[in-house]
Design a protein around this nucleic acid. Structure first.
Length: 263
DNA sequence: ATGACGCTACGATAGCGA
């Protein structure tokens, strides 16, 4: 790092990277994040638009899957050194929901946590089991003492403060007591919820449904999170949500969510 | 309760996921 003061790291559920490519590239050009974790690529490894992304100055690693899921890490501050692909803890889990790399001396885990609807049901059970595996792995990361972070689409609304109208989400897996409790226990291991720690009293949303003019009414929820280990938390200087891209044409239902770290 | 999107396929509309 030469004279750079801060490192900007973002998470963005792109909801189909090839359909959203113009939106992604426009945002990369305008926001110029140093590191980006993407979720919901909805493409195979072969169909990942690596050349387009490289043309904007980013190295990338990705873990695709036909039709669903898929995660990637982008960096314009050195090539990501991959340290993990697939969440440990279940060798039979074939869903592409986790990719991890060392970038600029930071261990970055990028995740797409299962949605879990309908609740109850097997998809909800899968969500809770996935969260148990994440809990175990996150503990391992903290124990390493490394500057580490876990970011992505957690598909969990942590508290009533993180939803425009709690009663509308009462029967949704994203707001279920079980998922919220597991998220709470995870953070309590010693992670810092970056956005909430810097903005304790604000309403912060990262997702708005396409239907019923949700974005225009700001009827949103906060489900995209960046969790920092103690050595990173002390370097946190800014955090926010880029709401503008959510208003663009043919856009994702999520907005890019980011932090800035002292380097 | 409603419903928007992208993706896929014994495809040209419908089911699935979320």
């Amino acid at each position: 790092m030469t004279k750079k003061q801060t490192l900007r790291i973002a998470t963005y559920n792109i909801n189909g990277i090839n359909s959203r490519l113009p939106v992604l590239l426009r945002w990369l050009e305008e926001a110029r994040p140093h590191v980006v974790g993407l979720q919901e690529l909805k493409c195979t490894d072969e169909a990942f638009p690596a050349k387009d992304i490289e043309a904007f100055g980013y190295s990338a690693i990705w873990h695709g899957q036909k039709s669903w899921n898929g995660v990637a890490l982008l960096s314009r501050v050195g090539e990501p050194v991959e340290t993990g692909r697939g969440l440990p803890g279940d060798p039979n889990d074939e869903q592409s929901r986790y990719i991890e790399a060392a970038i600029c001396g930071i261990l970055i885990g990028n995740l797409y946590l299962p949605n879990g609807n309908p609740w109850p049901g097997p998809k909800f059970d899968y969500k809770l089991a996935w969260m148990d595996r994440l809990d175990a792995y996150a503990r391992h990361l903290l124990d390493s003492g490394l500057p580490a972070m876990l970011m992505g689409d957690f598909n969990v609304i942590p508290t009533e403060q993180d939803v425009y109208k709690p009663e509308r989400w009462a029967k949704d897996a994203l707001f279920s007591p079980q998922a919220r409790e597991k998220f709470k226990v995870l953070v309590a291991q010693g992670w810092t919820d970056a956005l909430r720690s810097l903005h304790p009293d604000e309403r912060i949303y990262t997702f708005w449904h396409y239907w019923r003019n949700s974005f225009q009414r700001d009827a949103g929820i906060r489900i995209d999170h960046l969790l920092l280990s103690p050595p990173l938390a002390e370097k946190l200087v800014k955090a926010g949500v880029d709401r503008e891209p959510r208003g663009w044409d043919k856009t994702s239902d999520h907005a890019p969510t980011w932090i800035e770290l002292k380097v």
